[in-house]
Amino acid sequence: PRRIRAGGARDHLLGAHAVSGFGDSFKTGGKVVKNVTGYDLCKLLAGSWGTLSVMTEVTLKVMPKPEAERTLLLRGLDDAAANKAMTAALGSPFDVSGAAHLPKSAFRAKIEGLGDLLGEGEALTVLRLEGIIASAAHRAGSLRELLAPFGTATLVEDV
């Protein structure tokens, strides 16, 4: 769900040392973002599932952890309504960093780690906001108002 904001794992791979199927060792990419030039072989290697080469050393771009996280939960939406709610949230100026919809059928088995968030096994639509404390709190309140036509959104702080 966070790929909207942070990108995929392959987007964070800056450089790699690898060994090809012929036993040749090679290097691609660099150690910092600005050093990556030419064809970005790192992205190709990241998506090859080890069929092109075996990476022996990787350089990853890391991002700072946000100061605060706010999560809005909408319960009981069907797939179409959840799609409309997520589209409205992602198209809003409130900088949503993650969105997911868990349909009712996903809760046939108990899911560990979610505690009381699930309720009675109803569908759950989840939207995340990240940033500094004041900004995340303000944007969560504004997004809650925007999503009012879809039902009451429960706010979970610093998940």
Rank of each mutant, 00 (worst) to 15 (best):
A89D: 03
E122C: 10
R70M: 02
P66H: 11
P93G: 09
A68Q: 12
I111V: 15
V19L: 10
K65F: 13
I132W: 05
L147F: 05
K65R: 14
A85H: 02
S53D: 10
R128G: 09
L124W: 10
G21W: 01
A18E: 06
L60W: 11
N83C: 14
G115Y: 05
T56R: 04
G151P: 03
A153F: 08
A16G: 00
G38D: 04
N83Q: 14
S135V: 12
F94G: 00
A123E: 01
F107E: 09
E69T: 14
A46Q: 03
A46N: 00
L117F: 11
T51G: 06
G23R: 08
F107G: 11
L102R: 13
T125C: 02
D24V: 07
F107L: 12
D79L: 10
G113T: 06
T87A: 06
V36L: 05
R108K: 15
E130Q: 13
G98A: 15
K34Y: 05
A89M: 06
S135A: 13
A148D: 05
A106I: 06
S48W: 04
M55D: 01
E69S: 13
S135L: 10
L124D: 02
L52W: 07
G115T: 04
I133G: 11
R70Y: 02
A68Y: 00
S135G: 12
T87V: 00
G38N: 01
H101F: 09
T28W: 04
R75V: 10
R128H: 12
S53Y: 09
T125D: 08
N83H: 15
A88Q: 06
T59N: 04
L102Q: 13
L146N: 10
D79C: 09
F107T: 12
L143P: 02
A123I: 04
L52H: 07
L146M: 10
A46V: 08
V33C: 03
T87R: 05
A134H: 12
V58P: 01
L124Y: 11
E130V: 12
R108H: 14
P149I: 07
F22Q: 15
L60V: 08
T152K: 15
V33Y: 07
T87G: 04
A123Y: 04
S142N: 14
D116R: 14
A68P: 08
L114W: 11
G30V: 06
I111F: 05
A85I: 01
G50E: 07
L117H: 11
N35W: 02
G23W: 10
L127D: 03
